[in-house]
């Protein structure tokens, strides 16, 4: 399956499709909806969950010894409302493209190629939009991911994002992906005054500048931020993570008429135990944003480093 996936991803990212097949009596190999469409910057990121290595104490694939050092489910947090049905999983695929039809084509065909060998547990669509070179905004209207700029260098990525030399060989240069689906109470947020919204984050809504600073990327003086503001807590944690958030919109809550929408928090980091989990714990306990959000899904995956030509996803795990 991982070999088939690799072949498909390689082809699709170049804008190709599998052949529709020359035998009209059997189903076409490719589903066809991207014929005539460009690759649209399609990317596929693969991650392995803790249960891929050991599930219920069983080493199903004989690979437990290759489990990354920090790969475990995110522990229970205060105030969370996690639905196990849309959390976790053995394997995760993050598929991104500029065109939803191209992205879904990849999702759909990767599912087809896994039939009988893997079973779909959950699926989540999201979107992000912004002007190139500027930090995209989340559905609260605030810039999301400003602090990524702090480690925007080769050394910064080594320190913050890429997994270290103490990891199993396949994981070195890979990264841990933390995922939280965070429902945002948009209706109450939209009835909150601008000053309260800004105090909740500790940043100006329009400019993105932290309280006491002028520009978005100016140095943050934590002391000038409200004690429980989101950015203050992030700074207090003294840790960095690489944010890659998307927004989502789902359905209507039939009881309240409120829209189910929010943030697909995704962050990449070198060591979630040190960087991510303590930060999350502090946020869950203190963050002023908690009045407006609820964490409803959670997962942690280990994403291997990029492939060399001829390799397939997970090869260095399964053939080690």
């Amino acid at each position: 399956m991982l070999k088939d996936w690799t072949r498909f991803c390689d082809l699709s990212a170049k804008g190709g499709t599998m052949s529709l097949g020359d035998n009209p009596l059997v189903p076409p190999t490719d589903t066809g909806e991207t014929l005539e469409l460009p690759p649209s910057r399609l990317t596929v990121t693969l991650g392995f969950g803790p249960s891929f290595f050991i599930k219920d104490g069983v080493d199903r694939f004989g690979i437990a010894q290759t489990m990354p050092l920090h790969l475990k489910d995110i522990p229970r947090m205060a105030r969370e409302n996690i639905d196990p049905g849309i959390s976790g999983g053995d394997v995760c695929l993050q598929i991104c493209a500029d065109d939803q039809q191209v992205a879904f084509h990849a999702v759909r065909n990767l599912i087809r190629l896994s039939t009988g060998r893997a079973s779909l547990k959950w699926m989540q669509e999201g979107f992000a939009s912004g002007t190139p070179g500027k930090t995209p905004r989340n559905l609260f209207g605030f810039k999301d991911g400003t602090a990524n700029q702090l480690h925007d260098s080769a050394q910064g990525y080594d320190e913050v994002v890429w997994a270290g030399a103490d990891e199993p060989a396949w994981m070195r240069g890979g990264s841990y992906m933390a995922y939280r689906k965070i429902q945002m109470k948009l209706e109450s947020w939209d009835r909150t005054s601008l000053s309260d919204q800004e105090a909740t984050f500790g940043r100006s809504k329009v400019s993105g500048a932290a309280f006491g600073a002028k520009g978005e990327f100016d140095a943050v003086d934590a002391a000038k931020l409200p004690e429980h503001s989101h950015v203050r807590l992030a700074k207090d944690s003294k840790q960095q993570i690489h944010r890659r958030a998307y927004s989502y919109t789902d359905k209507v809550d039939p009881r309240t008429g409120n829209v189910d929408a929010g943030l697909l928090f995704i962050s990449y980091q070198r060591d979630p135990d040190r960087q991510f989990v303590p930060m999350l714990r502090m946020m869950q306990n203190k963050d002023a944003l908690n009045a407006y959000v609820s964490h409803i899904a959670s997962a942690m995956f280990a994403c291997p480093s990029g492939l060399q030509p001829g390799q397939y996803f997970g090869q260095r795990i399964l053939e080690s």
Partner: peptide
Amino acid sequence: SIGIVTIAGMLALSACNGGSNNEGAS
């Protein structure tokens, strides 16, 4: 709007028991 419209699809899968016979791993 010329902006980056990035659409993400995330999916998680569970391996099927006993279904990985051509991987030779289990």
